[in-house]
Design a binder for these strands. Structure first.
Length: 192
DNA sequence: AATCAATTCAACCGCCTCGTG
DNA sequence: ACACGAGGCGGTTGAATTGAT
């Protein structure tokens, strides 16, 4: 499923764009496993990836990190997103700190595609349902089904150590032909 | 079964901030 | 004080997928 794949040349240096291949993912995972994150431009060159540092960083943070959770946003997470968005606006990275394993990109996408749409729909009934909404069009109660008030952020500390997260992992909705399990097992094998 | 429309989300772009020389 | 590069962030795009007709 090679989409928007292209190659451009910047200062005689070949730069790949578009979706990442399994080979590129493996190179990035292996390199970070050996050398750690950071200094992304140098990392891209040293790893032999024809990608920009930014692209490598984005791929790692949004997709390849072992602790990243994708798909199946829970009602609790949805409530928290709405509450935090009401508080901070489009500060996605800040909001993401309170949702372990979730990326700012995923939260942003989720907000735009699901919540914002829903809020618009609810707002079309403005007046009739005013008692159900707060200033952000929130039509949900601030109490979650678990009885935890999402506004009490002590229940959702910023994730200093996301690896320690022990919540239930949602089934992957990974469209890639290769799964993260595949990649990480390959990474482990190659480092053997 | 075919076509069209709507939705999703990975990835890119441009701007901003911060650290360094 | 200024210039430059790297990293981070939010907005946007567009191909793939899904749903409706």
């Amino acid at each position: 499923m090679e989409k928007r794949s292209s190659t451009t040349f910047v200062h005689e240096v070949e730069v790949r764009k578009g979706p990442w291949t399994m080979e590129e993912d493996l190179i990035l995972i292996n390199y970070i496993a050996d050398h750690g994150e950071g200094v992304w431009n140098t990392l891209a060159k040293s790893a032999g990836l024809k990608r920009t540092g930014k692209s490598c960083r984005l791929r790692w943070l949004n997709y390849l990190r072992p602790d990243v959770r994708r798909g199946n946003i829970t009602p609790e997470e949805q409530l928290l997103i709405m509450e935090l968005h009401a508080k901070w606006g489009n500060r996605w990275s800040k909001i993401a700190k309170y949702l372990p394993g979730r990326t700012d990109n995923e939260i942003k996408n989720y907000w735009r595609t699901r919540i914002q749409k829903h809020v618009k729909q609810v707002n079309t009934y403005d007046g009739q349902t005013s008692s159900m909404q707060n200033n952000q069009g929130n039509m949900f109660s601030t109490q979650t089904c678990t009885g935890v008030n999402p506004m009490d952020l002590s229940h959702y500390p910023p994730c200093d150590n996301p690896m320690s997260y022990s919540g239930s992992f949602a089934p992957e909705t990974n469209e890639n032909p290769w799964s993260m399990e595949d990649l990480w097992s390959l990474q482990v094998l190659s480092n053997d």
